[in-house]
Amino acid sequence: MSDKVRGNVMLLLTAMIWGGGFVAQSAGMDYIGPFTFCAARYVLAMLALIPVIFFFSVQARKNPQASLGEKFAPDRVTLWGGLYCGLTLGVADALQQVGICYTTAGKAGFITALYIIMVPLMGRVVGQRIPKVLAFCVLLAIVGFYFLCVNEELSVGYGDFLTLCCAVFFSLHIWVIDFFMKRKADGIKLSWVQFAVAFVFASGLVGGFEAPSLESLWAARYPLLFAGVISSGIAYTLQILGQKYTDPTIATLLMSLESVFAVIAGWAVLGEVMNGREIFGCVLVFIAVLLAQLPLPVLKR
């Protein structure tokens, strides 16, 4: 299997896990606050990654006889990458988790997937040209977002707005990962450092706004285990490793499929149903997502 195919498979698995993660995040809100949920999932993700670092980090693979300190200590690039990734991830997850309290898992998945449009637009800021087809996709995505999120009173729901803001930070997260992975950061250690930084950020929010109890945390154990170990520890690490072999634009296409899996999971597990207007909005957003990545030479100039 080539590196490119391996990277694409990792990112597709990431999208599948994240799609189901919206259900776990929504279910967890029945027991604990959004910031507590984020902080707890980061702790579980950090614990889940410790054996992975021990056996599969770059240092562990190059020198199996290295000491524990050598195997776990991140180099300078990895440390800085984890810091920036952790900050963008912490903000994105906090916005998303609060947003899910006020919208459905399916809608949250589709709105979050707007990073597929935002990532190329951010590339324009650093000097990349915006193809004609992408400009059209931006307009189409905006129309789709209108039908998906704007109610009859012509106002965007609070949860929808927060989820849209989270998509901006997830876009930044993708670019930060691409930047540091191109500079040979250790992907597994970077993932651990980002969870540590995100935990510190989320813990500050917990201290300021919430008062969790051990009983409430135990009641939310199943959503937390999925979100912490699988959706965070496994999926975010797969994202970092997969992006190492894949262009950021292609990576966003594959990961945006989480929106489809989120709707399916929301329907199958939570019984969420969208009305015709919302389904039409989802279709427009998904078409925009696909068109933004299709190889159309005439339009991509």
Rank of each mutant, 00 (worst) to 15 (best):
M1E: 01
K4D: 01
R6T: 06
N8D: 08
L12F: 11
W18E: 09
G19E: 00
G21N: 07
Q25L: 10
S26W: 08
G28E: 04
P34C: 14
T36A: 11
F37L: 14
A40Y: 01
A40Q: 02
Y42C: 14
L44S: 14
M46W: 01
A48E: 02
L49M: 10
I50K: 05
F56N: 03
S57F: 04
V58L: 08
N63Y: 03
N63K: 13
N63H: 08
P64F: 03
E70D: 11
R76A: 14
L79D: 09
L79C: 09
L79E: 13
L87W: 09
T88G: 03
T88Q: 11
G90L: 07
D93F: 14
V98E: 06
G106A: 15
G106C: 13
G109V: 06
F110T: 09
P120A: 05
M122C: 08
L134H: 06
C137Q: 04
I142P: 01
I142Q: 02
G144H: 06
F145L: 09
Y146Q: 01
N151D: 12
E153F: 00
D160V: 02
F161T: 12
T163Y: 01
L164H: 05
L164M: 10
C165S: 08
L172F: 15
V176W: 04
V176T: 09
D178P: 09
F180V: 06
K189P: 02
W192E: 04
F195V: 04
A198L: 07
V200F: 08
G204F: 04
V206T: 09
G208D: 06
E210S: 05
P212K: 06
P212G: 07
L214N: 06
L214G: 13
L217Y: 03
W218Q: 07
A219T: 04
A220R: 08
A220W: 11
Y222V: 14
P223N: 03
L225D: 01
F226R: 00
I230K: 03
L238Q: 08
Q243M: 12
L254Y: 11
M255I: 14
E258D: 10
V260S: 05
F261H: 03
A265Y: 11
G266P: 11
W267I: 14
M274D: 03
N275V: 05
G276Q: 10
G276W: 10
R277A: 09
F280L: 13
G281D: 14
F286V: 01
L291D: 10
L294M: 14
P297R: 15
L299W: 15
